[in-house]
Design a protein around this nucleic acid. Structure first.
Lengths: 124, 124
DNA sequence: CCGAGAGTGAGAATCGATTATCATTCTCGT
DNA sequence: ACGAGAATGATAATCGATTCTCACTCTCGG
C-alpha cells in the first residue's frame, strides 16, 4: 500500500489530468481506494505548490483548490448548486484599467457563478 | 455608555460613510472609544445584512467585510501591502460571456490586487 | 540483511473567524 | 418608580480547514 512517491504521483497526476481545480478533500476522495490520508494530501500539495509545480486557487468561503501550474491565464466558475469550481479560459478586456488613479494593479481574478452544465440540465 | 440603537447607528453610519468595505474588526477599532465589543458588532452587521440594509463582501483568505447595500454595481481592490479593500467603480465588458457553452452565469466578481495609493507612494 | 531516512495515517492540536452564553445594564411604556 | 424585554460585553465555545505529532512502514544503498 505504500510506495515512496506513488501517492505523490497519484495526487499530481490527478491534478494534471483534471480540468478543474480540486480541494484536498476532492483529491482524497478521488484516490480513496489507495487509502491516502488527508495529512498526506496536504503534505504533497503544499510541497508541490512551494516548488511551483501546481497552483493554488482560493475562492471565498471554500477550501483551497489546486490545479496545474502551467495553464494559460484563465479564471474560474463556481457552481452555486454543486459547489464545484471549473476553469474558464480567456479574460475580459480592460480589467486592470478599472482601478481608479493611484492604484497599481498587479494581478486580478474573475469569479463567475451560476449553474454548471451538469446542474443546468433541463428536466425533460 | 449604552443607549439602545446608538451602537447600531454608529456601526451602520460608519459603514455608509466609508467608501470601502469594513471587517468586523475594522468597525470595532474605528468605534473603540465607544467600548463596543466584537459580539455586538457581529450582531449588528448580521441583522442588518439579513434585513438587506448592508452588503457582505467576501474575499479569499480574509474575514467578511460589510458595505452599503445601495452602491451601484462595482468590484473590489485588495492592497497586497496594507490588506485594505477598496471599491472599484464600473465593470469590464463581456465578463459573463467568458464562460463556455453550457454554463449559466448568474453573477460575477472581479478582484484586483496590487498597491493602493497610500502604499504606492514614491519615496522622494 | 541492516540501518538511515523519507513517507504515512490516525487522531490530536491549532488557527482565525464567528457564534453562543449569561449575568448585567439599559429602555420604555405605564 | 417598576417590570418586561431588548441590548451589551467578556469570555467560552464552536466551526471548518489545516497542521502537527508520533509510532510505524517502506525504500534503498551498501
Amino acid at each position: 500500500m505504500l510506495n515512496s512517491g506513488s501517492h505523490r504521483d497519484a495526487v499530481l497526476g490527478l491534478i494534471r489530468m483534471t480540468d478543474r481545480p480540486l480541494t484536498a478533500d476532492e483529491i482524497r476522495e478521488a484516490l480513496r481506494t489507495s487509502g491516502i490520508g488527508s495529512a498526506t494530501v496536504y503534505r504533497i500539495v503544499n510541497r508541490a505548490f512551494e516548488a511551483g509545480e501546481i497552483a493554488r486557487v482560493e475562492l471565498p468561503g471554500s477550501p483551497a483548490r489546486f490545479e496545474s501550474a502551467d495553464l494559460p491565464h484563465h479564471h474560474h466558475f463556481e457552481c452555486d448548486n454543486c459547489k464545484r469550481v471549473f476553469d474558464v479560459p480567456g479574460c475580459a478586456k480592460g480589467v486592470a484599467s478599472l482601478a481608479p488613479d493611484g492604484f497599481a494593479v498587479e494581478s486580478h481574478e474573475i469569479i463567475l457563478r451560476g449553474q454548471c452544465p451538469d446542474c443546468n440540465e433541463v428536466p425533460a
